[in-house]
């Protein structure tokens, strides 16, 4: 974001405003994020064990059905209006795991249902998650490129 030149009056007011501005409770948010994120991962681990134990999945292959299950659960939680409370409470703890990604996709789909399936749901479903996909893919590409080049140089 471009840093604007502020005139003295603006600077003065911003200082005044700063005194009253409520700070984000960063430490508390971290602790909450730790617990909420941890809890979500614990549930994920339980689901993985469930698939290993009752179905013919190995530790590696159990990952896919686990993610699918978690996203399904999040879909329900989002639809019933619970996940946004969890998000407000847990912050990054609920946004970083795959559940946060699912929530971003599903909430956008619900929100834009009113504009129809093609232009509404189809056009907006990746409104929030789209940038995750774009930059995720792109950074994966860059990392792979670097690894390949190092591999070629290093023999």
């Amino acid at each position: 974001m471009p840093k604007k030149n502020l005139n003295p009056e603006q600077q003065k007011y911003q200082q005044l405003q700063k005194q009253h501005e409520l700070k984000r409770p960063v430490l508390m948010n971290c602790i909450r994020a730790f617990w909420v994120g941890g809890l979500i991962c614990m549930i994920g681990q339980a689901i993985t064990y469930f698939y290993i134990y009752f179905f013919n999945f190995t530790e590696q292959t159990a990952g896919n059905p686990t993610v699918a299950t978690l996203i399904f659960i999040v879909m329900l939680l989002t639809g019933f209006g619970i996940y946004d409370h969890l998000g407000q409470f847990g912050g990054a703890g609920s946004a970083v795991p795959v559940t946060g990604f699912g929530n971003a996709v599903i909430s956008a789909a619900i929100e834009h249902r009113s504009e129809g399936y093609v232009l509404g749901v189809g056009g907006n479903i990746f409104k929030l998650a789209g940038s995750v996909i774009v930059f995720g893919t792109f950074s994966a590409f860059v990392v792979a490129l670097i690894k390949t080049i190092i591999g070629m140089i290093g023999g």
């Binding site: 290993i52 134990y53 190995t58 530790e59 590696q60």
Partner: peptide, 8 residues
Amino acid sequence: SSDYKIFL
């Protein structure tokens, strides 16, 4: 293998 499934 260190896979839990195989162990199990």
